[in-house]
């Protein structure tokens, strides 16, 4: 069969076939013996079932989906996994030997338990004594004040340095301690007259 015949339209049937088509169409198929009552009963029953279950079915899936999502969120909220923590290693450089105090490394002023500390006292005494650097670190405000350490150190090592004029200092070359108020006054007057 050619392509033209294949593409022929239904209205292009030959006249002989058209008349046969009409004659065949006039034939009436036999009446089927369908169980019409059963079909109508089923149709009515299905319609009744749909009318009763219709609203429920419309809301069933959205409700179920929302409930499932809420339950999942609740579970996630209750059984929340711990935040992932990472061990961080911090390297702190430690000096093998404590640093020595130098005049340039000391702060100008450090907190004092009793108030202000004598300015420059530590600077002046640092070359003479071994004072740990921890006591003079400016970033440690609660560290023991170096002034008192220095004072205690001086008092323990050189008690003769702190004797007043007129005190008895045998063998030290210092003036003797005045015995009374009059001696002290006279000594002061002599000093002022000579100076």
């Amino acid at each position: 069969m050619s392509a033209e015949e294949r593409d022929v339209k239904p209205a292009e049937l030959p006249p002989a076939l058209k008349s046969l088509e009409a004659a065949l169409a006039s034939l009436v198929p036999r009446t089927p013996s369908l169980d019409r009552d059963r079909l109508m009963f089923e149709a009515g029953r299905q319609a009744a079932v749909r009318s009763q279950a219709g609203p429920v079915c419309r809301w069933a899936w959205p409700t179920l989906a929302a409930a499932t999502m809420a339950a999942a969120l609740l579970v996630v909220l209750l059984v929340r996994p711990a935040a992932p923590g990472a061990d961080r290693i911090v390297y702190v450089p430690v000096d093998p030997q404590p640093a020595r105090l130098t005049p340039g490394s000391l702060p100008n002023e450090t907190p004092d338990r009793r108030g202000s500390e004598p300015k420059g006292a530590v600077q002046a005494m640092a070359p003479m004594f071994d004072i740990p650097a921890r006591a003079a670190v400016a970033g440690a405000p609660h560290a023991p004040a170096p002034y008192f350490d220095l004072r205690d150190c001086l008092l323990s090592r050189e008690p003769q340095l702190w004797r007043l004029p007129g005190q008895n200092s045998a063998g030290s070359g210092l003036p003797t301690e005045p015995a009374s108020y009059a001696e002290l006054r006279d000594e002061l007057l002599r000093g002022s007259a000579s100076g």
């Binding site: 036999r30 089927p32 369908l34 019409r36 109508m40 299905q46």
Partner: peptide, 20 residues
């Protein structure tokens, strides 16, 4: 959905041809 009215019409108009 298919109701009784539409079903009756389908049966009347197409039942015999469907059986054929």
């Amino acid at each position: 959905p298919i109701g009784p009215e539409l079903l009756a019409r389908l049966l009347n108009e197409h039942g015999a041809a469907l059986v054929l």
